[in-house]
Amino acid sequence: MFEARLAQSAILKKVLEAVKDLLTEATFECSDSGIQVQAMDNAHVSLVSLNLRSDGFDKYRCDRNLSMGMNIGTMTKILRCASSEDTVTLRAVDSPDNIIFIFESQNKEKLAEYEMKLINMDLEHLGIPETMYSCVVKMPSQEFARICRDLSQFGEAITIACSKEGIKFSAAGDYGNANVKLAQTADSDKEEEAVLIDMQEPVKLTFACRYLNSFVKATPLCAQVKLSMSSDVPLVCEYQIGEIGHIRYYLAPKIDD
């Protein structure tokens, strides 16, 4: 028996919105410690790594480890049927063919159940080595989303250059070019508005806008985003999910041909 309950479906709704552009299907691995998803987009350029800890749920029970293949489009449609304040419960038997989503309104007067067929999927894990990154930047997630959106108008790729002084985003295209520089905040009263740079060595990397613009769909999950970069390795873009876990996106860089 697997059962996981969240007092408010809002978190799960936001998680689905944050992955639906990149993934068509994904395996949800459920164990005693929580729910994990690791899945690449079809082109194998980006990877979503989602971790929801069991202690972050209001109720969590997982008698046997389960790998449930889910269609992300269908799951997104189902979550859109829940109000943000509804309690959501995921339920499956051992060796399940289906998963049930149960939404209960706050006043307990409405109870909705949606059953979704699971799909058989080959599990393909990527071993991601522990990496010490040359630059780790924490910045407001809305600012990052804004910069990605603005610079996408100028080119297909954004170059991120990070040094002690700050972080510079730039894009160049047929019609012109653009760049946005953010300095490290001196002393920000509000943690959420801070730009913090932890730099060992300066880095300069180029990434496709299309993926960055999918990652920023996670913005409603967290006020800050963490970007970890080293030369010639994939970017890690991380959003904390309240007290329950995190979503990390990995993105392969563009390199000189």
Binding site: V45, S46, A157, V233, Y250, D256
Partner: peptide, 14 residues
Amino acid sequence: KKKQTTLTNFFKKS
């Protein structure tokens, strides 16, 4: 001109 790499260039399948 830059070329898009894939994650399998960096991470091993396990």
